[in-house]
Design a protein around this nucleic acid. Sequence first.
DNA 1: CTTTTAAGTGACCGTCTGGACATTAATGAC
DNA 2: GTCATTAATGTCCAGACGGTCACTTAAAAG
Lengths: 201, 201
Amino acid sequence: MDTPPTNLDGQDAAPAKKRRRDPEASRAAILEAARAAFAERGYAKTTVRDVARRAGVTHGLVLRHFTSKEQLFLAAVPSPRTLMAEVAGDTKSLPTRIARSYVRRMAESGGSDPFVAMLRAVASEEEAAKRLFTAMQQDSLEMYRQVIPGPELEERVASVGAYLIGVTFSRYVFGNGPLAEMSDEQLVRHLVPNLRGLLLD
Amino acid sequence: MDTPPTNLDGQDAAPAKKRRRDPEASRAAILEAARAAFAERGYAKTTVRDVARRAGVTHGLVLRHFTSKEQLFLAAVPSPRTLMAEVAGDTKSLPTRIARSYVRRMAESGGSDPFVAMLRAVASEEEAAKRLFTAMQQDSLEMYRQVIPGPELEERVASVGAYLIGVTFSRYVFGNGPLAEMSDEQLVRHLVPNLRGLLLD
DNA sequence: CTTTTAAGTGACCGTCTGGACATTAATGAC
DNA sequence: GTCATTAATGTCCAGACGGTCACTTAAAAG
């Protein structure tokens, strides 16, 4: 009895489509699949086999083209096209242009933006983290409710929360940039007017 | 020839110290080890065996006490003591109190804060992400340099970057809260004054 | 002392991972 | 046509993971 090929990988790859030879198309398909996979599930949780399945090839081919998972990631994530492509113009309308550019970029990429992909890793399937985060937001909202005047309280608190998330990221997680280099006292002096602006108009 | 026990796990656990029986001490040691490990490497990259090794016990004991890795995480990460314990007071000095409270909390926890632990997961050992992030910051700084007046340009750009990171997190990653519920147009209207405040004083 | 209880251990399991590599087959050169 | 090249496949592997469990052993109860 001869052993028939059993395909231990379980990757039947893709469709009925007759696959003709086309290395560049394969490469492109793999890259696109990798972008989507990394954006959805983050680096750690994305497997080479996931990418291969999405691209309709075997995981062997993925590694053949990109040597390793990390090199695949580096190739897939587009070089950070500057967040603001169109800052040129007068200073007065600069904030508006930044906001528009940011929103448009996020809308266009539909979640596969490398920026989002990077951040997404933390959230993927980690329900505990999600609960933690929402609880924090809720808590601080309650606390502020009787202290802060004016309308749009929720939105302002959310903005403060977002700002502090970003500061934490820069200073305590990534640990570089101006925010990371300040002393605690400097940081406080820097935060105060910004928090005032976000919270009290 | 009898097969000697080979210890396939490779966990020699801890030290020469004579370990007396003390379940509560073990529990506490495991929890502390878990806190440190999760804060340093994030959830996904922390293994039960890592925690056990740090605590000087076997991974079997860790799971005996906490049943599963997820339950260990939930037990180790302290409940989110509200980010601002001391918001009570007059509105005028509120931003100062928030800033001080935030900075103190971060300084005290020394990186093992659950907030940081949560965010850290994304960065742990993912050099690619780190490079991406710094490149983005650098890029936008260059772009702003000739457009924006005034001193402390680096710090202001960093603040804008931080703010947008946080907004992205809330809106596109976690997807809840006011920032996630706005339409794109609403978001732009909300961002503009905030960006103006952060960038142009 | 003996018996009982529970803390702690370590071998084991099924599964999955990134990676290696021999094999197969489609293509272009001659 | 034949041959060399190489894209693509699928099998294999060593290691690590979370989790289980039979067992050992220290301590408390009688």
